[in-house]
Design a protein around this nucleic acid. Structure first.
Lengths: 136, 136
DNA sequence: CGGGATCCCTGGAGATACTG
DNA sequence: CAGTATCTCCAGGGATCCCG
């Protein structure tokens, strides 16, 4: 993914003759925005965990395998910025920060299950398609 | 996005105590595979157009605003590899190549509409969340 | 504990030129 | 027409060190 939180380019021809295509184009922009928001290596994993229950920074660092401190911070900031996560800081010693998914994020999560379903249903079909393609 | 068509890393802890989290983790892998497949700047735009009707290479080049020859070729190849596009070459002079979405891809497209819906519903909410966040 | 700051590397993507 | 090849650039991401 290229532009992070800058502009969202008009992916496809903004004007055209065919109305069916045009409406699809509008759809595409939305989908792209969504993808730009939740793509990136780590966002979904974090969204997933914070949807279950409030999670602390270190907790997330442990649960999300392979993530670096830097990327965890960056991804959390972006999700918070988009209103998908709530960040709560308890001014104790030592400090305690919790992240929890917002209702909007929980709704997105449910939506993602549709994608999950698709992936599960076609997992083998895709795998064999790749195999066939690579063998040629 | 990092790994293209290499391995799909286990995003989140593969083992753990909580069953609810574990099942979600499995879901996450599927979603990640899907996202790795359809993310990238151009895949969705192409999927969208080829779902409407068979499209020729040059036609796609015109319709997908801003795409380079190189990226068009690469994206088409990846989609074909995953069994989302059918590439048909007519051995005429000059050559004629057509790309069309497979049933699997059409099903994915329908699934993407759920994401579109989410994005449309929360577009303003996200925008204002960003505005608020950036102003601090 | 929960980050911020810095350096560095990689691969996604653009630009341009060439070809069956 | 439908690509391939090459060069280049930049942002995503890793590693490391530092701090309140």
């Amino acid at each position: 993914m290229s532009q992070r939180h800058t502009d969202v380019p008009s992916q496809v021809e903004p004007a055209g003759g065919d109305d069916r295509v045009d409406s699809s184009v509008d759809q595409a922009c939305s989908v792209l925005e969504v993808l730009n928001r939740i793509s990136g290596k780590w966002a979904i994993g974090i969204l997933l965990l914070t949807t279950q229950r409030p999670m602390r920074f270190t907790e997330l660092e442990r649960e999300v395998t392979g993530i670096s401190r830097r990327m965890l911070t960056l991804t959390l900031r972006n999700l918070e910025r988009d209103g998908l996560l709530i960040r709560t800081v308890y001014p104790t010693v030592p400090p305690r920060t919790e992240y929890e998914a917002t209702p909007m994020a929980r709704e997105l999560y449910r939506t993602l299950l549709a994608l999950t379903g698709w992936a599960d249903r076609h997992r083998h079909e895709i795998a064999s398609a790749r195999k066939t393609f690579d063998e040629q």
